[in-house]
Design a binder for these strands. Structure first.
Ligand code: FES
Ligand code: FES
Lengths: 152, 152
DNA sequence: GAAATGCCGACAGAATCGGTCGTATACTGA
DNA sequence: TCAGTATACGACCGATTCTGTCGGCATTTC
């Protein structure tokens, strides 16, 4: 539990790969799939999803493929996960669309919602760029969002 | 994705319920199940799991049931989730027991492991007591673990 | 000894996930 | 224009996981 789906993982890997190859105009789904050894057709669908959510730009035809729609610094892991797996809540009851049948009795939900927000905040603070440069992250403190406050 | 299983939710609810009724010596699984309208047999198994992990004390026989093994303040949400759903990793590849087949190619895992730790830290900082007292959590800062550092 | 309770394993139904296939569509370049 | 390469999209299926149920047994109280 509390783990990324493989699809989200693939999606992040693909974006990271694109971020690492800024010189190329576009990379096809197959290129990326081959690079990591993941199912090409599955990755294709994932890339399409991200395209639909505005994270990627696609281009059909020969020498077509995908490219980042924005700077790698401006795409957060949160957005990727959101695009691929949809909205997520740590509470099992979705609360947004259709609340759980035992919503009135369960008072667990509310405090956990705050945990949920914290996690979302962490994920939002991570950009594709951060993933691409996997050098030693010892003393990085740029942009000030390296610290997440959790006032429970 | 990234959501608690219903079982973990139930488990937290049950512990919270026990924490709210410190006067009673023990509450049966059925008592708690009825209080929240959750399947009694399922909850029973969950309580047993938590007992096995040392979070609860059980007592068979008439007027038996469960009671907290420790003070509500000393039981973290992390422990509960761990006891019920087992160890969790945000990366889809478990990495501990049997690493994913594409471990060498995937460099996503390592940065995400740090996110994983952060989330675990947040969960560890939340006690059953915190859940039980769902008053306005405006100005609580006790014990100094209300702040989680995330140095990505 | 009977009733209430916890303990444990097996199992079935449902939902979700991972992955494949087929087909339609769009673009490129010769 | 036409062939080739690539995305777009929906249907589908097998595997896994999750949720919940059942049955039998052990333990304690009355
Ligand atoms: S389980 Fe649905 S409100 Fe908590
Ligand atoms: S998917 Fe297994 S190592 Fe990243």
């Amino acid at each position: 539990m509390l783990k990324l789906t493989k699809k989200a993982d693939y999606g992040l890997m693909a974006l990271k790969y694109l971020a690492e190859h800024p010189e190329t105009v576009a990379l096809s789904a197959k290129d990326v799939a081959d690079a990591y050894g993941i199912p090409a057709q599955l990755l294709a669908k994932i890339l399409q999803l991200m395209t639909k959510h505005g994270l990627l730009r696609s281009h059909a035809g020969m020498n077509g493929g995908y490219s980042l729609a924005r700077d790698a610094r401006q795409i957060s892991a949160y957005e990727v996960i959101l695009a691929i797996d949809g909205p997520f809540f740590i509470t099992s009851c979705t609360k947004g669309t259709k609340s759980c049948e035992l919503t009135p009795s369960c008072t667990i939900k509310e405090p956990l919602a705050r945990v949920n927000d914290t996690i979302a905040g962490v994920l939002k603070s991570i950009s594709i760029q951060d993933l691409a440069e996997h050098e030693q992250p010892a003393n990085r403190a740029r942009e000030g969002h390296g610290l997440v406050a959790l006032t429970l």
